[in-house]
């Protein structure tokens, strides 16, 4: 497994944990309020901190186990994988943005639109890393 693939696994894991934290927090706040909770800066900050800390720890562990792999430059296959996954994840983000805008036009609920946009961002990022892992495993043509 190349360092780049390990990095994709780490980021997919970190994004999943961060996303889970964010979803659980919003759902529990909303059930307490009896309505959709408004987006709060501390929740976004904690989500970001979780993401950054997990990414840093994960990469430190990956480097500790195989330091020589971490020094390898990204090669042509990995660059193609990055390009392909970035291209495909852009569609997910675009569809999410359109969905969020449609949701707003339908509900006129800004909070809902924020969550839909934030979820699109999270899902597109997660999708990008999942595609990278899949292309590393199945091959890129």
């Amino acid at each position: 497994m190349t360092f780049h693939e390990k990095s994709a696994w780490i980021m997919a894991f970190a994004l999943s944990i961060g996303g889970l934290f964010y979803a659980v927090t919003v759902l529990s706040m909303s059930s307490g309020l009896g309505a959709l909770a408004p987006p709060l800066i501390p929740t976004v900050v904690i989500y970001t901190v979780i993401l950054v800390v997990l990414a840093i720890i994960g990469h430190i562990v990956a480097v500790a186990f195989a330091p020589e792999d971490a020094d390898e430059a990204t090669d042509e296959r990995e660059r193609r994988i990055i390009d392909r996954s970035g291209h495909l994840s852009a569609y997910v983000l675009g569809a999410g943005v359109l969905f969020a805008l449609g949701l707003y036009l339908w509900s006129y609920n800004g909070n809902l639109m924020f969550y839909a946009l934030f979820a699109s961002l999270m899902l597109s990022q997660l999708f990008e890393y999942v595609v990278q892992i899949a292309l590393h495993r199945r091959g890129v043509y």
């Binding site: 497994m1 693939e5 090669d75 042509e76 296959r77 990995e78 590393h136 199945r138 091959g139 890129v140």
Partner: peptide, 19 residues
């Protein structure tokens, strides 16, 4: 040739078309 071991493996297995 300036690629990783994994890329050589992928070429050999027909999972990657090299430049």
């Amino acid at each position: 040739i300036g690629v990783t071991r994994q890329t050589v493996a992928a070429i050999e297995q027909g999972r990657y078309s090299p430049s």
